[in-house]
Design a protein around this nucleic acid. Structure first.
Length: 395
RNA sequence: GCGUCGGUGGCGGAGUGGUCAAUCGCAAAAGACUGUAAAUCUUUCGCCCAUUGGGCUACGCAGGUUCGAAUCCUGCCCGACGCA
């Protein structure tokens, strides 16, 4: 069970300040939810995760089902004990993998395709991919769920609302998500409509299948079609059994298109329930995400980019993008910290750019670990500042 | 000294008469990444111009054979191994 309390609703935007109470502690919202797909925020120990000001983590049903299997985690006493993380947790339903292993893979895209790619080259590709019987190549979607081959061993597997719920109950996170289909960017209206209806039926099945007291979030889909997004929000909002809502799928043609979609959707959702934006959260997106009325959002960017050698820093440290690429040889001569304006353990602890650049270039895991720590701290600090801004009525 | 094998782009290492500026790997440079098939992927990588393309110099060195040579022949230089 969770309890959510809105502390302040902004008058300037949809932004709101809140507290999300879970059996494993409270989350001050809006909050970033770092991604711990395989029950690990890659490269960090669980105590380090806490030291990055991270409040809540999201793991993945699909991945943990493949490896090590939900039984192992259940036997360990649930995901918190398993990974020695004391704070709140969420598990994603595995629905995203329907996309990433399916159309996403067929089309070679992530959930955010650039506006240019969509408008110029993309629509026919999508139609072609979808027209072939409405199925991705490597995944087969039916009324009951999704059949696919494990990328690990190649064996056939099946995941649907029933399976996802059963797995998520065994994993034991505080918040779980309904099984959905995440459609590819540029999806046709007809396919979206068909998929949305099915995602709604799956949502009902998830509610019915759930036996635990975990908080279940229903996921709003509808791509960038306003009427479908609204239909989805209204539909899920009337369903009994959702403690909160996820907003998923591709989020429009522009990087910040998220804002429009959130503004269509959030006013139609019960304001007393928390909303989680799935898979979105570049630094430059975060303010829009909050303004759109999302309370939590998860994103792989801080952790993922860190392992690629990219640090996010204050603009003073790196110019307009705030990004510093530690693969660049020039940093081997830089004696400064990652970011002078940052108070994280790495930046204040004597680690210099020259060393981190060396680690990244030499492929030493310590480099990814140091940048992961910094990036998460940096994102969390930024989010903290925005919470302050909402509090002061500036956002 | 004799014999054998070998000397290819920053490195390793393919190619053994034309489609070779030369497969591939590494290194290097640039770019991408948003519910993590992700410590990954893409592009560039002899020099000089160019939009497709063109010009130049190149496969140890110097000659030669041939319409044409990194590839065949001769000599030389260098290396590894074997025998004296």
């Amino acid at each position: 069970m969770i309890e959510f309390k809105v502390l302040k609703q902004s008058k300037k935007s949809g932004a709101r300040l809140g507290v999300l109470k879970t059996p494993h502690g409270e989350v001050m919202t809006p909050s970033l939810v770092p991604v711990a797909t395989l029950a690990a925020v890659k490269a960090l120990r669980s105590d380090e995760i806490a030291a990055t000001k991270s409040q809540i983590l999201i793991s993945n049903t699909y991945h943990l089902h493949l490896q090590p299997g939900e039984k192992v985690i259940k036997n360990a006493g649930g995901i918190n004990k398993f990974m020695n993380w004391r704070g709140p947790t969420m598990t994603d339903s595995g629905g995203f993998q329907v996309f990433s292993l399916g159309f996403g893979r067929d089309l070679g895209v992530g959930k955010v395709a650039s506006a240019k790619a969509i408008t110029k080259y993309y629509p026919d590709k999508v139609e072609r991919a979808i027209e072939k019987g409405g199925q991705p190549k490597n995944v087969s979607i039916t009324e009951d769920g999704v059949r696919f081959r494990s990328p690990l061993g190649g064996e056939e597997m099946f995941l649907g609302p029933k399976e996802s719920m059963a797995i998520q109950e065994k994993l034991g996170a505080d918040i779980i998500f309904s099984f959905d289909e995440c459609t590819p960017p540029g999806t046709t209206y007809d396919y979206m409509k068909q998929s949305l209806d099915r995602t709604h039926r799956w949502a009902a099945r998830c509610i019915k299948a759930k036996k635990s007291k975990q908080a279940l979030y229903g996921i709003v889909q509808g791509s960038y079609f306003r009427d479908l997004r609204e239909e989805s929000a209204r539909h899920l909002n009337t369903m009994e059994g959702f403690a909160g809502f996820g907003i998923g799928g591709d989020l429009g043609e522009s990087r910040t298109g998220t804002k429009d979609i959130l503004q269509w959707v959030t006013p139609l959702l019960d304001a007393r329930k928390p909303r989680h934006l799935l898979g979105m959260g570049h630094i430059e997106d975060i303010e829009n995400i909050m303004a759109g009325g999302a309370d939590t959002f998860d994103c792989t960017v801080p952790t993922h980019y860190a392992r690629r050698g990219i640090a996010f820093t204050s603009k003073a440290a790196a110019g307009p993008t705030g990004r510093v690429d530690f693969n660049k040889a020039a940093l081997l001569k830089d004696k400064g910290p990652i970011d002078r304006a940052c108070d994280c353990m790495v930046c204040t602890g004597g680690y210099r750019r020259e060393y981190i650049a060396h680690l990244i270039r030499a492929n030493e895991i310590t480099g990814g670990a140091l940048l992961t720590f910094h990036n998460l701290f940096f994102f969390n600090t930024y989010v903290e500042k925005l919470r302050e801004k909402i509090k002061k009525g500036l956002l």
